[in-house]
Each structure stands twice: as structure tokens, then as C-alpha cells.
Design a protein around this nucleic acid. Sequence first.
DNA 1: GCCAACGTTGGC
DNA 2: GCCAACGTTGGC
Length: 241
Amino acid sequence: MSPQGKKRSRATLAGKKRPAAKFAKSKIQEEEEELMMPVPKERSSKPVGSSTGKATKKAACPSAQGSKQVYSHWLMKSEPESRFEKGADVKFGIEDLKAQPNQTACWDGVRNYQARNFMRDMKVGQEAFFYHSNCKEPGIAGIIKIVKEAYPDHTQFDKKDPHYDSSSTKENPKWSMVDVQFVRMTKRFIPLSELKAHYQVHRASGGLLKDMTLFTRQRLSVQPLTDEEFEFVLSLEEKPS
DNA sequence: GCCAACGTTGGC
DNA sequence: GCCAACGTTGGC
């Protein structure tokens, strides 16, 4: 995304963009995706709060009737190293976000329905990990927060943009983006290798990270974390690497 | 640079 | 609707 939505997505501003590639999905396909989305497959979504039934105000309540899981934490991938796509550099690391006016940028360029739908679920004030992908050292570099909820991604209408989508119209925009603001760097960089090691242990032992989307849906550039996953990953900050 | 994972396309 | 071909993601 820019962040890779992207897979990737990224922020806008002068020049970075990503590829638009092929998008020619049938209407049907598109609608389907919009309507049903993604509750990431297996996570047993545990509603964050109550065990007893129903509706406490909290968040996640996957309840029986098929309502979908509600998330309040996210992980957003972006590439911190230069890479050219259709002539444009898609580089957008956390340092690039910090350098933006107000340390804020729009997360444009996401061209995957599931990632898009997760962005549409994001609420102002929610936090996300800023994940560096496709680079020397992949992993979590910092924390960002949502400062503007989903609105049309302007790059879909820009023929010069690598993410241009000729099938989208202003009347019915296909792709969305959110605005994010830098919150802080993590106390230390949390490498993918470390996260993966925990994931593997947890997968075997039934630990907290056993369903972490980063590993269960490998190429998804915008993804949710349960509160427990978010807290666990944050706790790694305190450990010496 | 390689290549596994996986989403999309399009023939049938 | 199946599925092989193809393209992209992204770790290594």
C-alpha cells in the first residue's frame, strides 16, 4: 500500500503509485465482493467482550445471525524501498508518512476488494500497525491512526496513475481509501521473522497469534487484528530483541 | 532474482 | 461453473 494494498497502497503525493493492473471484474463479482465480505476465514472471532450473549456494547459480536466481526485494530502494508511501477516510484515507508504535512496521508492505491472492504470498516481514531513490506527487513515499524474514514480513491480516475481503473466511474467509485496519521514509531522494529516465530508456536499451542491474518492471508495488504493480537504484538516492543 | 501463494481471467 | 493460464505479492 501504499501502502500496499495492496496490495498495496500508499499515500499519495507526488509521485508514487502503484499499478493498476487488471481489473476487469464482472459486475457480479464485484457486487458479491462488496456485499459479503470478509471475515477472515477462520479466526474464531471472539467478540471482544462478553461471553454471554449478546449485545453488550463492545465491539465484535459475531453473533449467530451472521453479523460480521467488528475489528478495531489493523495492519497496513507499505513498501519503504523504491520500486517502480508504470514509471512511478511506489516507495512509501513510515518515514515518508512522517514527512507529510501533518504527518498525514491518504492510503490510496488499494485494488483488492477484501482490503478495500476492511478500509471501509475503519473508524476515526482506530490504530493500525504500519508494516514495511517487500524490503530488506519486513516488519512493523510504527503505529498510525485513522483520521478520515473511507472515501473515493482519486487515483482510480487518473489515467496517469498506475492504479487507474477505467472501469470505475465517479458516480459509482469502485475503490476507497482512508487518511492515516503517524502516531509513533514502535519502541523497536518488530521483524516479520519474530512475528512468524510467535505465530508458529501459537499455531501449535493454541496461542493468541494462531489466526493472525498476516500469516493466514499472506498477500492481503490491509488486514484486521483482534484486540488480543494487537496487544500481544505491542507487548513485543518491550522485549529486548 | 527466484518462486510459492493466491487472486483474476477467460476458454470451454 | 470448472479450471488452466497468467499476473501480482512479497518473503527469502
